[in-house]
Each structure stands twice: as structure tokens, then as C-alpha cells.
Amino acid sequence: MIKKITTLIVLGIFIFMSSQTNAQRYGTAAGLRLGSNDFSRTVGITAQQRILKNITIEGIAQSDFSRNTTLHLLLERHRPIISKRFNYYYGLGYSLGWEESNIKNPATMEIITTYGNNTNGIDLIGGIEMTILNTTVSLDYKPNFNMSGREEFYRGQVGISVRTVIVKSKAQDKKRRQRAREKRKKNRTPLFEGLRERFKKN
């Protein structure tokens, strides 16, 4: 099972890297996320960082302040729907946490609930987002596939996130170009020094 999951992650990363579409209006954004499923309602913090032209890393920390607290790290690919301000995204990642687990006993027709279970699993995510007035609002669905620590193999969660744009994509691209120019300038050999080195070798 672990081999299959590893293959899925590698395949997903390959697909993400192959795209060249620019979809985000932000480089760095952070804010709040509200999550909901059949087991709990969570409040959390979310931060997204663009690492390639249309690829972001998102970190989520969320809790219901009772029996479920989880941490998530996701790699996401963004594609525009109408413009850079309105796009959809999907991705996958890894999660760990401390969760409740429900075990059904058919003999007694009871459901035994335990909590404080150390869990880890694989996440998928799909959603839409809109950026306006330096604020990004998104709606997503995040399925989780448990690898250990929980009786239920699958749990889905609907989330609404509101993030403030900290660094715009244009500013991030400008800094990247400046660093690249400075690096090229630093590594460039002056013309006369290059000729002098050639004559020395001869």
C-alpha cells in the first residue's frame, strides 16, 4: 500500500511540474480556514507559497479544540477559469494528527469511540479561489486516506478559506529576476580578464 501511495505522489508531482499556465495573483498568502465533515467542525490557519509558475505549497493546521487536531502539507497546481483572479486548483499531500476513531461492534451493535489516536495519511484537494482587493477566498474539498491510527480509511472535508495576500506574484517574479541578474553579473568574467587568461594558457 505504501508503494502505491509513493507512486501516486511521484506521478502527481510530475504532472504538476509539466504545466506552464500562470494562474495566481499572489506569491504568498495566509489566513483562516473553516473545515466541516461528519465528525467535526474545525478552525485553522492556512498559508500558501508559490514555488513555481503555477505551483504552490499549502500548509494547514486545524482543530476542533476537542478530539481532532491535524496538520497538512499540500502541493497544488492552479489553472485559470476566467482570469488570474479566478481559478481552480487541485493537489495532494501528507497529513498527521491526533484524531478520534469509531469502531463498530456488530455483536453488541455498539460504536466504540477512542480519541487521542496518532494518525497519518494522504490528502487530495480540489477547489476554486478568487482574489480581489488583496484577499483570496477559496472553497475546497479535501479527502483524507488514513494510513495508520484511525479505523475509518476515508474522511472528506469541505473547507472555506480567507487569506490575505502578503506578497503579490508580480513582486515575487521581480525579486526572482533581480536575483538571477545579480547571479549572472557576479559570475560574468570581464572581457580583458578573459583575454588575459587565454594568453596565459597559450
Rank of each mutant, 00 (worst) to 15 (best):
I2P: 05
K4F: 07
I5C: 11
T6V: 13
L8M: 07
L11M: 13
I13P: 01
F14L: 14
F14A: 15
A23F: 10
Q24A: 04
R25C: 02
Y26E: 08
Y26V: 10
G27L: 01
A29V: 07
G31Y: 08
G31M: 06
L32E: 10
N37G: 04
F39C: 02
R41A: 04
T42G: 02
G44Y: 02
I45Y: 06
I45L: 06
T46F: 04
A47M: 12
Q48W: 12
Q48S: 15
Q49P: 01
R50M: 12
R50G: 13
I51F: 08
N54A: 06
I55F: 11
I55D: 02
T56P: 10
I57L: 14
I60K: 01
A61S: 02
S63D: 07
S63L: 04
S63I: 04
S66V: 12
R67F: 15
T69V: 09
L71D: 06
L71H: 05
H72P: 01
L73R: 12
L74C: 09
H78Y: 12
R79D: 11
I81E: 06
I82F: 11
K84T: 14
N87E: 03
Y90P: 08
G97H: 06
W98F: 02
W98S: 08
E100C: 04
K104E: 12
K104Q: 09
N105M: 13
E110Y: 09
E110P: 06
I111A: 06
I112G: 10
I112D: 06
G116E: 00
N117K: 07
N118L: 15
G121P: 06
I122F: 15
D123F: 00
I125A: 10
M130C: 12
T131G: 06
N134P: 00
T135D: 05
T135G: 06
T136I: 10
S138A: 07
L139H: 05
D140L: 02
Y141D: 05
P143T: 08
N144P: 00
M147L: 15
M147Y: 06
R150Y: 05
E152P: 03
R155I: 01
G156W: 11
Q157F: 00
I160S: 04
S161V: 13
S161D: 00
S161G: 05
S161P: 00
R163M: 10
R163T: 09
V167M: 15
K168M: 03
S169Y: 08
K170Y: 11
A171D: 07
D173L: 15
D173P: 00
R177A: 14
Q178P: 03
Q178H: 10
R181G: 08
R181L: 15
K186P: 10
R188W: 11
T189Y: 08
P190I: 12
P190F: 09
P190R: 09
E193A: 07
G194Y: 09
R198F: 13
F199N: 07
